[in-house]
Design a protein around this nucleic acid. Structure first.
Length: 897
RNA sequence: GCACGGGUAGCUCAGUGGUAGAGCGGCUGUUUUACACGCAGUUGGUCAGGGGUUCGAAUCCCUUCCCGUGUACCA
């Protein structure tokens, strides 16, 4: 009956061969392909494109596992699914990567040695060879993306969209070029957007410096600053107009130290009277706020820093050419020598740091391209009205706040790798135009500049802008620029977006605006913000801390399914995930459990015949729990509660199915068992496994697919891989049974399991846990038939269960009151009266406490009067049960004395 | 400073007003034919502290403390 091969199935599940096999199979069969002509309801997700330089980290695993679960579940629900993958050209990261390669050459080279055209070619070559490793890694995780539609943010079609969007926004007057204070990265030599600057707490020093009065060099004004190296660029000292200490100095002048010159004392509201000395040096070229003050007062702008952060001030030879931080030290020394340093104190402030290079940002006056965001109002309303839902919902507040205080977006970068700005200057006036303080649509209308999707027809007359666009200026088009018209008409707007809350401003909000402006509406209906994966100390995972596990290593050791399952089990909604490898091991253990439960079925051989009657209460019980599981999974996934879903799947299978049901039916399958009974049990097992594999498949796609095939379900039901099989309906599971049939069966099964537990407890307390020769005796209170009695013996590890209404136990026989009735464990000569007495008195202690607590509650008049009657009844019932148990124990106790 | 999230068993976390839970870990026993990646038993909690509402609070309100995140200012 049992094929030999099945007996020889390995005892442990090995995911390595299985996972790759199915990944290949699914792809070859085109299982992931999305058909825009399908009549089915559309379900779509665009993958947040990882950097093309990226390698898979735990954040990606979390993110993409969730997307895969959603996509696979949607397929089971009969939807046409598009999960669109791709990578981002990641301007700065990729350029830096290739520059690093160049610097390793002998002799070292820079991009300037290569020249722009050649350098860009080198980056493309690097991308073709090394880029997109992460795509291969995502395949190993089992991601069911439509890989044929993989996109890159610099694909030709995509680039056309970028140019088109730029051109339209420019023509609309939303894009302009201007001389503005920007965040300058002195290491990468490019401007950055506000979002790319991270305010970092920093241990600084506050220096108080003496600025001598012009009229009397023996008197001075004290000015506090953290940046003495910029003194040479000071053009004024400002005080608050309401500050009485300085009112008599207004209009007078002080001598600027280091690079001596008289500068005026001015009054500006911005200065805080209470801070420092109440006098602020004004350095318009090197501070955002000072720049504004400078504009208000028409002050000169003196720039004394080079783009790479060195001092450019020949008038001050001691500092000229020094790096800004070296210059800070040096300038303090010079001031001290001149006795102009009043004091120096420790000071904690926040310093803006480049997200990309970690270098402190330099506020710098620079010619850049800016965008006034389109469709801000629509974007705001889409979320506040609920057309787009955020989960967890509180992120909507962060989003709204950002939109309320939105600033123009600096979109130009001084990079070579990226979308080059589609603006050309007329060659006759290119030089002047590049210096012009503002350029906009008017200049295009006048023919001074050309802006367009295509280069101008007479290229010889034009010079293209040197700058590239911020990478996010292409990413924000991702949900629609990745699709052709046909695809868009079926799959846009997308259904779900799954991403990290850290890019809510960089990406999510900008996509919403772009969607409204360029694609006719919202880009997605739901946004699920994943948690951030942290280590057990709660720290962010990072390369430098070395606390970031390599997902591929985890896949190698625990399987992709194990990794996915383990991670989903600990992924809460709304907070951080603390990553613990133990949990991934649990995922692997669970896969093994599932495998062995299926292996057990395979060892029973042949298919069960269909249909089979529901046989005993425990069969009905497990089917009813399975039906509940269907609802739990649907409910949890509907609310994006992946941990709850995984937990429900785990506990059903391990506890309800394996530990209780399977253990209780083993005798049904033994040789010599009644064939009808055997068939009923096999049929129930097959039903449970078939439904269960389908429910689990989105989370553990490989092992479920493998078992689906090896259990023969593929051949038997749809002859399709599990991943293309519709989710079986739970409605037929208990057909023909009434509500009361079911609840009776469940109560009966619960009583059996509870009684088996009590029996095991008794055995353990008498050190008989492993002894299978004991007998159990039940004095029944509920109808206890032979079937139930046999199952009880099996579950409790006993030789048999005797059901006897008029049983009189020998003195000192261990006993317990169970839902089935009085349970005895006759010891047949092994009676230990003292042990039993001790056990009873321990029990009594516990129960007496419960009785006291319950009694006190019921004695409380206001409880009885005010609590709902069900609650009171429940409490009374509880008390009655405890008292009954106590009576039982007391009887036993007196029998012993 | 402001806003948001969190603090429950040694660890990771469930638990939206009615007997405090799960998994892991610890301890004890166990190689029994699906599974030692297992099985059975067991240990373990002032639900951060204080106050309030309520017959009843981990849960609702106020407050303090701690951790995390975002954001503003910072000479």
């Amino acid at each position: 009956m049992m094929p030999r091969a099945m007996r020889e199935l390995p005892k442990a599940y090995d995911p390595s061969a299985v996972e790759e096999k199915w990944q290949r199979h699914w792809q070859e069969k085109g299982c992931f392909h999305a058909d825009p002509h399908s009549q089915k309801q559309a379900y779509s997700i665009v993958m947040p494109p990882p950097n093309v330089t990226g390698v898979l980290h735990m954040g990606h695993v979390l993110n993409n596992t969730i997307q895969d679960i959603l996509a696979r579940r949607a397929r089971q629900e009969g939807k046409e699914v598009l999960w669109l993958p791709g990578t981002d050209h990641a301007g700065i990261a990729t350029q830096a990567r290739v520059e690093k390669e160049l610097s390793k050459k002998n002799p070292p080279r820079t991009r300037f040695d290569e020249g722009r055209e050649n350098f860009v070619k080198l980056v493309w070559a690097w991308k073709e060879e090394h880029g997109g490793i992460i795509i291969k890694q995502l395949k190993k995780l089992g991601c069911s993306c439509d890989w044929l539609r993989e996109r890159f943010t610099m694909d030709t079609q995509y680039a056309r969209w970028v140019a088109r969007v730029f051109t339209e926004l420019f023509n609309e007057g939303l894009i302009y070029r201007g001389l503005r204070m920007v965040n300058w990265d002195p290491v990468l030599l490019t401007a950055l957007s506000d979002e790319e600057v991270i305010m970092t707490p920093s241990k600084s020093k506050l220096y108080t410096i003496r600025y001598k009065l012009q009229e009397d060099p023996n008197r001075w004004l004290l000015v506090a600053t953290t940046r003495p190296e910029t003194i040479m660029a000071d053009v004024a000292v400002a005080v608050n107009p309401k500050d009485p200490r300085y009112s008599n100095l207004l209009g007078k002048k002080v001598i600027r130290p280091l690079c001596e010159a008289p500068i005026p004392i001015i009054a500006d509201e911005h200065v805080e009277i209470g801070f420092g000395t109440g006098a602020l040096k004004i350095t318009p070229a090197h501070d955002r706020v000072d720049f504004e003050v400078g504009v208000r007062f028409g002050l000169e702008i003196i720039d004394i820093l080079t783009p790479d952060g060195h001092i450019n001030c020949p008038e001050c030879p001691e500092l000229h050419g020094l790096d800004r931080f070296a210059a800070r030290e040096k300038s303090v020394e010079l001031l001290r020598n001149k006795e102009l340093l009043e004091k120096e104190e420790a000071y904690d402030n926040n310093v803006g740091v480049s997200q990309r290079s970690d270098a402190p940002i330099e506020p710098r006056l620079s010619m850049q391209w800016f965008l006034k965001y389109p469709c801000v109002q629509e974007a705001k309303e889409a979320v506040s009205r609920g057309d787009i839902t955020f989960r967890p919902a509180h992120w909507a507040k962060t989003y709204a706040h950002w939109l309320d205080s939105i600033q123009d977006w600096c979109i130009s970068r001084q990079l070579w790798w990226g979308h080059r700005i589609p603006v050309w200057y007329h060659k006759d006036m290119a030089t002047e135009l590049k210096e012009a303080p503002k350029l906009d649509a008017e200049d295009a209308a006048a023919g001074r500049i050309y802006v367009g999707e295509e280069p101008p027809n007479d290229p010889e007359n034009w010079v293209q802008d040197e700058d590239a666009l911020d990478t996010w200026f292409s990413s924000w088009l991702w949900p629609f620029a990745t699709m052709d018209d046909e695809c868009r008409s079926k799959f846009y707007p997308t259904t779900d977006l799954v991403t990290g809350p850290d890019i809510i401003f960089f990406w999510v909000s900008r996509m919403i605006m772009a969607g409204f402006r360029f694609a006719g509406g919202k880009p997605f209906s739901n946004v699920f913000f994943t948690s951030i994966v942290r280590d057990l100390q709660g720290r962010k995972m990072s390369k430098s801390l070395g606390n970031s596990p390599d997902p591929l290593d985890l896949i190698a050791r625990y399987g992709a399914d194990g990794l996915r399952f383990g991670l989903m089990r600990i992924a809460p909604t709304g907070t951080d995930v603390k990553f613990d490898e133990k949990q991934i091991e649990e995922g692997k253990n669970f896969a093994n459990k599932l495998y062995n439960a299926a292996r057990f079925r395979m060892m029973q051989g042949g298919a069960s015949s269909d249909p089979a009657p529901h046989f005993s209460p425990i069969h009905i019980d497990i089917l009813s729990k399975l039906k509940e599981l269907h609802a739990q999974v649907a409910d949890a996934l509907g609310k994006y509660e992946f941990n709850a879903c995984t937990q429900a799947l785990y506990s059903f299978f391990w506890n309800e199915y394996c530990s209780l049901f399977l253990e209780a039916v083993k005798n049904d399958l033994r040789e010599g068992a009644d064939p009808a009974v055997r068939n009923a049990t096999l049929h129930t097992i097959d039903t449970v496994l078939r439904h269960y594999l389908a429910l689990l498949a989105p989370i553990m796609p490989h092992i479920t697919e493998e078992l689906w095939e090896s259990l023969g379900y593929a051949a038997r039901y749809d002859n399709k891989p599990l991943m293309l099989t519709p989710l079986p309906s739970p409605d037929t599971l208990l057909s023909g049974l009434s509500e009361s049939d079911i609840s009776l069966a469940r109560a009966s099964a619960a009583a059996l399991y509870e009684t088996a537990n009590r029996a095991r407890n008794l055995k353990a307390e008498y050190n008989l846990a492993t002894n299978k020769n004991v007998r159990l005796v039940v004095k029944p209170m509920l109808p206890t038939d032979a079937d139930l009695a046999n199952r009880l013996a099996l579950l409790a590890g006993a030789k048999e269960t005797i059901v006897k209404k008029d049983y009189t136990a020998p003195r000192g026989t261990p006993t317990a009151l169970t839902p089935l009735g009085e349970l005895f464990l006759p010891l047949e000569g092994l009676v230990d009266v003292d042990a039993e007495r001790a056990r009873i008195s321990k029990e009594l202690d516990k129960i007496s406490k419960e009785i006291a607590r319950s009694q006190a509650k019921l004695d409380n008049e206001s409880f009885v009067k005010r609590a709902p009657s069900e609650v009171v009844q429940q409490e009374q019932e509880r008390l009655r049960e405890w008292k009954e148990k106590k009576e039982h124990l007391l009887t036993m106790q007196s029998a012993l004395s």
